[in-house]
């Protein structure tokens, strides 16, 4: 699992998606490699979420093709995408607040004892603690109720769970929204560590240009259902991104 041999994890070619008369995606192509983090920027309603939902199998494209590990696939459901190692982590939907950290980590994949099939709490605690340690997520105790943890810790646990259950293509829907600097730092560190493992491809929707350029290897800008800008993070700047957005905004106003 070396990080230097970059290979394609997921690719979407010329994706078109309509909802009635609304053209949500008009021929969008993206590609994320193993060990790479892609930032997807854009206004509300630009089509970012539709794109992510096509990659998770929630929506099916009207035309275009998705490739996983270079093989063309038709993602017909969320479960199907998950079975191929594609997992989306949503900020609010991910965890059950009233359950402990380790119960959340093993939700619906519980470990059981041979005796009557009762839950093996001790083994789940041990494995959950090991999995969290492994990717460097610190929590006071795996027994703690998730409700008592901070937003950043919750998000980190949701990501850790996805990785623990073999997700190799991680889609993060606004992982840094509504987080203070310290909390955001927690997630940024986690994303960095996952990237350095080299075997996980990450695509994240984000709003903060500076943060995104900082975290991601590459960024794409989605506007009115098309990718209008694409660059390596080191080769662009917040100013350039803003200029692209400003140009589009002026054009839209004139029209």
């Amino acid at each position: 699992m070396s990080g230097n041999a970059k290979t394609e994890a997921i690719r979407a070619e010329s994706i078109v998606k309509r909802f009635g008369s609304v053209l949500a995606l008009n021929g969008v192509s993206i590609r994320v490699e193993r060990g790479e983090t892609l930032g997807i920027l854009g206004d509300n309603g630009a089509g970012k979420s539709t794109l992510i939902k096509i990659l998770t199998g929630f929506h099916q494209p009207d035309s275009g093709q998705v490739f996983v590990n270079g093989t063309p696939v038709t993602l017909n459901s969320v479960d199907h995408a998950r079975s191929l190692g594609i997992e989306c982590v949503y900020q609010d939907l991910a965890l059950v607040n009233t359950l402990s950290v380790y119960h959340n980590m093993f939700l619906n994949r519980e470990l059981r004892k041979p005796f009557l099939g009762l839950l093996d709490h001790a083994e789940m605690r041990r494995q959950a603690a090991a999995a969290l340690d492994d990717i460097g997520v610190g929590v006071p105790s795996v027994r703690a109720e998730v409700a008592r943890l901070s937003g950043g810790q919750r998000q980190a646990i949701a990501v850790a769970r996805a990785v623990h259950t073999n997700a190799r293509i991680l889609l993060l829907d606004e992982p840094l929204a509504a987080m203070g600097a310290r909390e955001a730092g927690l997630i940024i560190d986690l994303i960095d560590r996952l990237r350095s493992r080299g075997d996980i491809a990450i695509a994240m929707i984000a709003h903060n240009y500076a943060q995104t350029l900082d975290i991601c290897d590459r960024v794409v800008l989605v506007q009115h259902g098309e990718i209008t800008f694409e660059s390596h993070s080191t080769e662009t700047s917040v100013e350039e991104l803003l200029e692209v957005v400003r140009r589009e905004y002026r054009a839209a106003r004139r029209a």
Binding site: Y90, L93, L95, V96, N108, R112
Partner: peptide, 24 residues
């Protein structure tokens, strides 16, 4: 406390969407 049924009952009441997302 010690069966999947019970844990899934807690998950359902705690966050129905998350429970359903996890396949419960």
């Amino acid at each position: 406390r010690h069966t999947r049924w019970g844990l899934h009952t807690s998950a359902t009441g705690g966050n129905e969407l998350a429970a359903a997302e996890a396949g419960i």
